[in-house]
């Protein structure tokens, strides 16, 4: 008998266990190994999801465990989908999502393209640019509230310096028109480096010989950019958009720290509203329905997007 790892493992198996395993198919053994993971998945993800769906058809409140739970059918869903305030929250979420993705892709790709150029101090600049995403969102939210402070905030003073508009004449977090942009700016500041890193990985994966071949074909830099760089980085970029899109759809901590959803409900994103319904008002059944609606929305959009991503990759 050869002294292979397999042999050593077989010899190390206690005889009573070996007798039991003997006769099991490879498939059965594979199931034995996979079972704990599947069990955990069922216990931590699938069961709560099914339980949430069930709760969404009731008037259950977690803070009233003794109250009789009534089956209310689709009433929770109907109330949510016909509530104009919730549609305003959805609009705020869509605004935040669209503009953060737009700016992060634009700036992130530009930075990656610049960093990809070989220049002195390249690594140092990469480290500096990446710093914001290493910070805690709570910390970022907190210090940006100071930066936005109309009387002492550096941001306001910078605007005054650049435009001449008096620093204390506008309130980034207190103004209905500016607050939605204030949260976009902070999220963009924090997460653009993430998009940049992914784009940089994409740019560095493009072999030099493709550009060399293009040079030989006398393709201009502009044409090289649009026919080589962009198509080859696109799958990476789309992946970054997917990650950031999902993250920003459920954005909570940063915005809570910055505006608390205000002024009024102007920056109350869907996740903030959901948290209020679930853990402040304790409308568990109602908020379960709300969570299911958000889940279906994210899942549906992500599925369509992933299909598009796969098509781009296949090209």
């Amino acid at each position: 008998m050869t002294d292979s790892p397999l042999t050593r493992a077989a010899e190390a198996t206690p005889p009573h266990l070996a007798r039991r395993i003997k006769g099991l198919s490879d498939r059965a053994i594979a199931w034995i190994f996979v079972a704990p993971t599947i069990f955990l998945l069922l216990a931590i993800n699938i069961f709560p999801l099914i339980w949430t769906i069930r709760l969404s058809f009731t008037n259950f409140r977690a803070n009233r465990p003794n109250r009789e739970v009534e089956w209310v059918g689709l009433r929770n869903y109907e109330r949510i989908l016909t509530d104009s305030d919730i549609w305003l929250n959805m609009q705020a979420t869509a605004h935040f999502l669209f503009w953060t993705l737009f700016f992060q892709v634009l700036i992130g790709f530009t930075l990656a393209w610049l960093i990809n150029k070989k220049f002195r101090g390249n690594d140092l600049w990469t480290t500096i640019i990446v710093l914001p995403m290493m910070l805690s969102p709570a910390v970022v939210g907190n210090f940006w509230t100071f930066l936005y402070q109309p009387q002492i905030g550096l941001f306001n003073y910078a605007i005054e310096f650049l435009t001449g508009t008096p620093a204390s004449s506008f309130e980034m977090l207190g103004s209905v028109t500016l607050a939605p942009w204030a949260i976009v700016i902070v999220d963009t500041w924090m997460w653009t480096p993430f998009v940049m890193l992914i784009c940089l990985a994409g740019l560095r994966s493009i072999p030099d010989y493709i550009y060399e071949a293009a040079e030989i074909d006398r393709a201009s830099k502009w044409r090289q950019f649009w026919t080589i760089t962009v198509p080859m980085v696109l799958p990476f970029l789309m992946l970054a958009v997917l990650f950031r899109g999902i993250e920003n759809f459920k954005m909570f901590d940063l915005v809570v720290q910055l505006t608390g959803g205000g002024p009024g409900s102007i920056t109350e994103l869907a996740s903030i509203n959901l948290k209020r319904e679930a853990f402040e008002k304790w409308r568990t059944g109602y908020s379960s329905a709300y969570a299911i609606i958000l889940f279906v929305t994210v899942f549906g959009l992500a599925s369509i997007y992933v299909k598009a991503l796969n098509k781009v990759k296949e090209r």
């Binding site: 402070q149 109309p150 309130e171 977090l173 505006t259 608390g260 205000g262």
Partner: peptide, 13 residues
Amino acid sequence: ELYECCTPPGYTN
């Protein structure tokens, strides 16, 4: 009106 006329800038929260 009291909020609008007479509070310091930035006291929105």
